[in-house]
Design a binder for these strands. Structure first.
Lengths: 245, 245
DNA sequence: GTCTATAGTCGGATAGAC
DNA sequence: GTCTATCCGACTATAGAC
C-alpha cells in the first residue's frame, strides 16, 4: 500500500442540525442527512476496502454501495485516504466498545495468586473470541485490520492503540501466572502464543471451515473453541502455580 | 478481490533453448532469456501483489520492478490474473520444497505412544516456525497467502493443497497424543490452536516487533519462540499420556 | 522473445449548479 | 449537503515492428 500519507484533514463534524429552527416543516423530516451519509459511507467502505484492499478499492464502488454520491466522499472526508483512516478509527472504536469493559476490569484487578491471573486471562480470551468470531461484522473488520498488521501504514498506530494495550494486559497476567517478569521478552512472546490460539480461527477461517466441513463457525463451534482455549491456558500455566481450574 | 476467474491460460513453458544449434555464437551467451524474464516477473510480482493486493498491484509496477517490458507479462503468462496464479503456485512450491521432507517423514511415521506423536508435532511446528520466520522471503510470501486466506479466490485451492495436508497431519498427531478421534471437530480445532501459536508471529509481526522493541525477529528470538511452542505443546498434551519430554 | 505505440476503460479529484 | 459533468492521468490488454 503506497502508505497513506498523514494528512488526515477530516472535516469537523457538522454542527448538530437539531439546533435548526425547531418548527421548520422539513427540518425534522430530514434531520442530520450529512451524518447519515457519512455513516453509510463508512459502513460501505469497510466492505470495499476489506475486500479489495486500499488501492484496489475505488471511491466509485464505495459511493455506490453506500447509496451516496461520488462527490460525497470528498465532501465528508476530504479524500479516499482520509476515508480509510476514518474507517480504521471506526473499527477500533467498535472493538473498544465491545472489549473495553473487560480490559478495564482486568486493568483494575491486581491478581496476586497465579490462579487468579489465569482466570482473568481465560476471561479476556473468551471475550476476544466472542468479538472476533461471534459477530457477523468481525469478518469485515478483520480483513482491514489484518492487512494493516501485514503491511502497516499510518493507520497501524490507531490499531496498535488497542492491540498494544490488550497485549500488555495479557502479558501482565502471564507474568503473574508464571511468576515471571512482565517486561521479559519471553513473557511477551508467551502472551502472543496465547492470543494466537484464538486469532488463527479468524485469520485462517476459510481453512478452518473447509477442514471441519462447515459453512460458518456458529455458537456451538465458538463454545468448543473457547473450551479448548481455556483448557490450553490451564495446561500452559499449570506447572508454575496452582492454576488448574 | 474480484475473484480471478479460472482461465489459467498459462503458456506452455517454452521449449528448452538448450536444444538450439549448439555451436551458435550467441546461443550460449544468452541462454534461456525467456525463462529468466519469467522468473524475474514472478519474483517482482510476489512483492507487488503482496504489498498492494491483487487489484491494487499494477502490471506496470511489476514489469518495472522485474526490469522487464510491460508486454512481457502477457507474453509469458497471458494476463495479470494468470500471473497471480503462477505466483501463488510458485510460493506453495517454495514452501513445499522446505517443508515437504518433514511432512513426508511424519506421513511415513505411525506413532503409537502419545509421547512419539508429541515429539513429531513439536518437530513439525519447529520446521514451520523456521520456514515462516527464518526466511527473509517468508514475509513476502505471507502477505499473499494470508490475504488469500482472508478472502479466498481460485488461488486458495492451491494453498489449501499444502495447508490442508499439513493440518491433517497435525490433527492425526494430536489425535494420537490425546487418544482422541482424528475426525472429531474438537481434535481438528485443537490442531489449529497449536498452529496458531506459531502463525501469530507472522501475521502480527509488526505488533510483535513493537511490543518487544526489536527491528526484526532474529535467530535468538526464533529459538525462543520454538522453545516456548515446544513447552506449550508438552503442557497441552501432558494430561492424556506420558508426553512430557 | 522483446519492444513501442495505442486502443479503450476506469481511476481520484474538482467545479459549480441546485 | 447533494448532485452532474468533466479533467486528466493510469490502467490492462492488443497490434505489429524488429
Amino acid at each position: 500500500m503506497a502508505a497513506p500519507r498523514t494528512n488526515v484533514q477530516r472535516k469537523a463534524v457538522s454542527v448538530e442540525p437539531s439546533a435548526a429552527p425547531a418548527g421548520s416543516p422539513t427540518a425534522r423530516a430530514r434531520r442530520d442527512r450529512g451524518g447519515e451519509t457519512r455513516e453509510r459511507l463508512i459502513e460501505a467502505a469497510i466492505d470495499v476496502f476489506g475486500r479489495h484492499g486500499y488501492e484496489g478499492a475505488t471511491t466509485r464502488q464505495i459511493a455506490k454501495a453506500a447509496n451516496a454520491n461520488l462527490a460525497a466522499i470528498v465532501y465528508h472526508f476530504g479524500s479516499k485516504e482520509a476515508l480509510y483512516l476514518a474507517v480504521v478509527e471506526h473499527l477500533i472504536g467498535e472493538i473498544n466498545r465491545r472489549m473495553g469493559p473487560v480490559l478495564a476490569f482486568v486493568e483494575a484487578s491486581f491478581p496476586e495468586r497465579p490462579a487468579e491471573a489465569v482466570a482473568l486471562l481465560k476471561r479476556m480470551l473468551g471475550a476476544f473470541v466472542d468479538v472476533i468470531l461471534g459477530n457477523p461484522e468481525a469478518r469485515r473488520w478483520a480483513r482491514i485490520i489484518i492487512r494493516e498488521l501485514l503491511d502497516p501504514t499510518d493507520a497501524f498506530d490507531v490499531i496498535y492503540g488497542f492491540t498494544g494495550r490488550a497485549h500488555a494486559l495479557a502479558t501482565r497476567l502471564v507474568a503473574i501466572a508464571d511468576g515471571a517478569d512482565a517486561e521479559a521478552m519471553e513473557t511477551k512472546l508467551r502472551a502472543f502464543t496465547v492470543i494466537g490460539q484464538g486469532i488463527v480461527f479468524r485469520v485462517a477461517n476459510a481453512m478452518v471451515l473447509r477442514r471441519i466441513e462447515r459453512d460458518a463457525l456458529g455458537p456451538a463451534e465458538r463454545e468448543a473453541i473457547k473450551r479448548i482455549l481455556a483448557g490450553n491456558v490451564d495446561a500452559m500455566f499449570a506447572g508454575d502455580g496452582d492454576a488448574r481450574a
